[in-house]
Simulated scan of single mutants.
Amino acid sequence: MDFYKHQMSVMKDLPGLREVTGNIPEEYHEAVNEKKKCRLYNRVFESDHYRKIRILYYDGGPNTQVFNSLLYPRYEHDLPVLGIDFLAFGKKKHLTVMDFQPLHDSHVVDFEPTLQSIKSNYPELGGKMSSKFYDETQFFSPELLFARFEDPSVVHEKLLPAFTEYLSYHIDMIKTNKPNPAIANQIYEKQREYDIYSAERDPATGMFAGMFGKEWADTFVYDHLFELSRH
């Protein structure tokens, strides 16, 4: 996928980037269901500025394609998590969710004006998220990019450039932010709250259970996607 390739190319320039996928059990690096012809790939990185960058690609053939990524700043940075979720169901049904997900109401950097400027260039991505799984008032900013669309041209003409700009801004923001060790415990707790909230509501758990089994899915989501057992 172009999104995966772009993110990997940008990440190469992150100071101290290293892959740490080997720190999780091998069965969670890749999962395959030959009968249903689906495959999941999971990679994890860290850098001097990010304590964790998780990239997941789910290939369900032409019926289901998923690109998901989360970028967690190190605890010394009072900055939002960058959350990315792009899904395609067949050729006509697309779902986009991307946001600088705030951990609290007063981050040290006021990132919303820049995001607002970027978002204004992509009105097709300015929809309102359903409350079926998530509450927009918790861990989402007003500059959330959300869209359901059928026109495949939107993917490369709007979504890809918006993704590029959001990702670049998050990286620029964290590189220029001065780390503050005094806030590490506070940010640790806020990121843990975010992980709990996300794991309990992630609709992908059901999809993974249907493809790879419930036990695998629960352990993968709670212990490896969000690492709740490690806190």
Results as ranks from 00 to 15, higher is better:
103 L>G: 02
201 R>Y: 00
175 K>M: 11
31 A>D: 08
208 F>S: 00
90 G>E: 11
44 V>L: 08
181 P>C: 06
109 V>H: 03
61 G>R: 13
207 M>D: 05
131 S>A: 13
138 Q>P: 04
80 P>V: 04
37 K>G: 14
133 F>S: 07
210 G>R: 05
131 S>C: 05
185 N>Y: 00
140 F>Q: 08
104 H>V: 14
188 Y>M: 07
30 E>W: 12
110 D>T: 08
180 N>W: 08
107 H>I: 12
27 E>K: 14
172 D>V: 05
39 R>C: 15
62 P>T: 08
231 H>N: 06
4 Y>L: 11
45 F>M: 04
108 V>Y: 00
179 P>M: 00
103 L>T: 03
47 S>D: 01
6 H>E: 15
155 V>Q: 09
181 P>M: 09
222 Y>F: 11
72 Y>G: 12
231 H>D: 05
172 D>W: 02
108 V>W: 01
75 Y>S: 09
14 L>C: 06
47 S>W: 03
49 H>I: 12
176 T>M: 06
73 P>H: 01
61 G>F: 11
100 F>V: 11
53 I>C: 06
201 R>F: 01
172 D>A: 13
39 R>E: 15
17 L>G: 02
29 H>E: 12
113 P>W: 06
95 L>H: 10
160 L>F: 13
57 Y>A: 07
194 Y>L: 05
37 K>V: 13
35 K>T: 14
173 M>R: 10
132 K>C: 06
155 V>T: 15
80 P>L: 04
164 T>F: 00
228 L>Y: 02
38 C>R: 13
113 P>L: 10
195 D>S: 14
197 Y>M: 10
54 R>K: 06
155 V>P: 04
17 L>Q: 03
117 S>H: 12
209 A>S: 15
138 Q>Y: 12
227 E>Y: 02
96 T>R: 00
41 Y>W: 08
85 D>H: 02
186 Q>C: 04
45 F>N: 07
69 S>C: 12
50 Y>W: 08
48 D>V: 15
58 Y>Q: 09
188 Y>D: 09
85 D>V: 04
3 F>H: 10
138 Q>W: 09
223 D>W: 00
81 V>P: 04
36 K>R: 15
116 Q>N: 15
154 V>N: 01
78 D>M: 05
205 T>P: 00
184 A>F: 03
104 H>P: 11
39 R>K: 15
145 L>K: 07
86 F>W: 08
102 P>L: 04
74 R>Q: 05
164 T>S: 14
41 Y>H: 10
154 V>I: 15
24 I>Y: 03
170 H>D: 12
203 P>I: 13
157 E>Q: 14
157 E>W: 01
166 Y>N: 08
20 V>W: 02
84 I>P: 02
120 S>F: 13
142 P>F: 01
136 E>N: 04
101 Q>L: 13
79 L>F: 04
23 N>F: 12
52 K>I: 06
216 W>D: 03
72 Y>E: 10
90 G>A: 13
165 E>V: 07
28 Y>M: 07
108 V>T: 14
213 G>A: 02
176 T>N: 07
66 V>H: 01
201 R>G: 00
24 I>H: 00
128 K>F: 09
145 L>W: 09
213 G>P: 06
164 T>A: 10
76 E>I: 03
166 Y>K: 05
57 Y>F: 14
151 D>Q: 13
